[in-house]
């Protein structure tokens, strides 16, 4: 029952985050969204993921967003009625709705053949993962299977993940650090 309640709340959060015009509030609600998501993860026994989502997803993302917001504008532009009725705006809306509905319909169509929720005989639980559950303790000596897989079996994904952080870090530094202008800026005089 509590699961259903959580899901309802999270849907409400998502709708609220998306529709509110005050971006600061939207960001806060997004934080709440992440946090409830972490709770749901815990309910689904994904404790490691829940930790990460709560700290990284809800925490860091919110902090970053607020930091960004502090340097830009807090309120989203309110379109007037006439602006909202312009053909281009309407077209965009209809197009996005169309895309979204199609995508959603395709996804729902896919679920028709899905194994039931929690089915222990689902292929996802049968083929590769049993070995992680049965052997990883012997093979790696770690009690937590998730950690074992993360660090050992799929260690290179983790290396990739680290690289992603590094790449993002360098990009952010590149974008935000104030660099001195070049002394001899050859582009200064050229217009094209």
């Amino acid at each position: 029952m509590i699961d259903i309640l959580l899901l309802l709340i999270i849907v409400a959060c998502a709708i609220a985050a998306v529709s509110i015009k005050d971006l600061l509030s939207a960001i806060m609600i997004l934080g709440v969204y992440s946090f409830i998501m972490a709770t749901i993860f815990t309910r689904l026994n994904a404790v490691d993921v829940a930790f990460t989502e709560a700290s990284v997803g809800a925490g860091i993302t919110s902090v970053l967003m607020i930091a960004a917001l502090s340097r830009t504008k807090r309120y989203e532009y309110l379109y007037t009625k006439s602006e909202r009725r312009k053909p281009s705006a309407l077209f965009l809306k209809v197009l996005s709705l169309f895309i979204v509905i199609i995508t959603g319909a395709v996804l729902v169509y896919g679920t028709l053949d899905m194994p039931e929720f929690g089915d222990p005989d689902a292929p996802a639980n049968k083929h590769v993962s049993p070995r992680y559950i049965e052997e990883s303790h012997h093979e790696t000596g770690v009690n937590n299977f998730v950690t074992a897989v993360l660090a050992s079996y799929r260690g290179y994904d983790t290396l990739g993940e680290t690289t992603v952080i590094f790449t993002a870090g360098i990009c952010v530094i590149l974008l935000l650090r104030k660099f001195k202008k070049d002394d001899d800026d050859r582009y200064a005089g050229i217009c094209y």
Binding site: D48, V49, A124, S129, Y132, V149, L150, E161
Partner: peptide, 8 residues
């Protein structure tokens, strides 16, 4: 455990 790893 595998999807957990992927999602991390």
């Amino acid at each position: 455990p595998l999807p957990h790893v992927l999602i991390l």
